[in-house]
């Protein structure tokens, strides 16, 4: 589904990714774990195409998308959920969801499923997204990406700035959704409970490189990698 080879990327002239290799198979839920500054968000931005890599390749669904702009990748089936719940604050909940329709061109819009996973979004349809709580905005960001039935869901630190109780609920919903709709998920995270609940396997990222691959997610091992 996704194969990244020797990916280098930088902000201005500061290198952030220094040769990342990873792959995600169809139907898998894969986590990339690492501390702040490891390059996790940069990795996600490079995968969706918001950041142009210096070198390396990104293959998605069997084709090379390294030079495709981000909107083409989204229409090709990538559903991106930005960090810090980047919803459009002055658009209503419904309008935000409608923005997700262009993800995975030709796919069916799945409002019913999204409203079933997150009933609050249906309740607040008419409300401006910016007036909702952090957790609700995160649900909206997830819902927005799901509406277009993406083949690959890219989640950038879903727990960031969200209450712990909601984090647990959301990890469960995402896991359930991935299973029911056979959606592949790649997420980056440093929150242990999300990694425990969600990941089938993980990569450990440090200073812009993948330093280890964990075939099974064991609480203690993961905790060691995240410990300061």
């Amino acid at each position: 589904m996704l194969a990244i080879e020797d990916l280098h990327a930088s902000y201005d002239s500061t290198p952030v990714l220094r040769g990342v290799d990873l792959s995600v198979d169809e139907g898998e839920i894969v986590g990339v774990i690492g501390k702040n500054g490891a390059g996790k968000t940069t990795l996600m931005k490079s995968v969706i195409g918001l950041l142009e890599p210096d070198s390396g390749t990104i293959q998605f669904d069997g084709r090379d998308v390294t030079d495709e702009p981000s909107d083409a990748r989204a229409r090709g089936g990538m559903g991106y959920i930005p960090q810090r719940r980047d919803v459009f604050p002055s658009l209503t909940v419904e309008e935000n969801l409608r923005m997700g329709e262009s993800i995975n061109e030709g796919g069916e819009a799945r409002y019913d499923a999204v409203y079933e996973y997150f009933p609050i979004l249906e309740e607040r349809r008419e409300q401006k997204a910016g007036t909702m709580s952090g957790g609700q905005q995160q649900m909206l960001a997830v819902g927005r990406a799901l509406v277009g039935s993406p083949d690959l869901l890219l989640l950038d630190e879903p727990s960031e700035g969200v209450q712990p109780s909601i984090v647990a609920e959301m990890s469960e919903t995402i896991g359930q959704m991935s299973e029911e709709t056979e959606t592949t998920v790649l997420f980056v995270e440093q929150n242990l409970s999300v990694i425990d609940a969600l990941a089938e396997r993980c990569y450990v990222m440090e200073k812009g490189r993948i330093v280890e691959e964990l075939a099974a997610v064991e609480h203690e091992t993961v905790a060691t990698h995240l410990a300061v």
Binding site: I48, L50, S70, D71, A74, P82, S90, S102, E105, G148
Partner: peptide, 12 residues
């Protein structure tokens, strides 16, 4: 409102 996010939602 937010060009990069709109682009990442498939908007040209």
């Amino acid at each position: 409102e937010d060009e990069p996010t709109a682009r990442s939602m498939g908007v040209d």
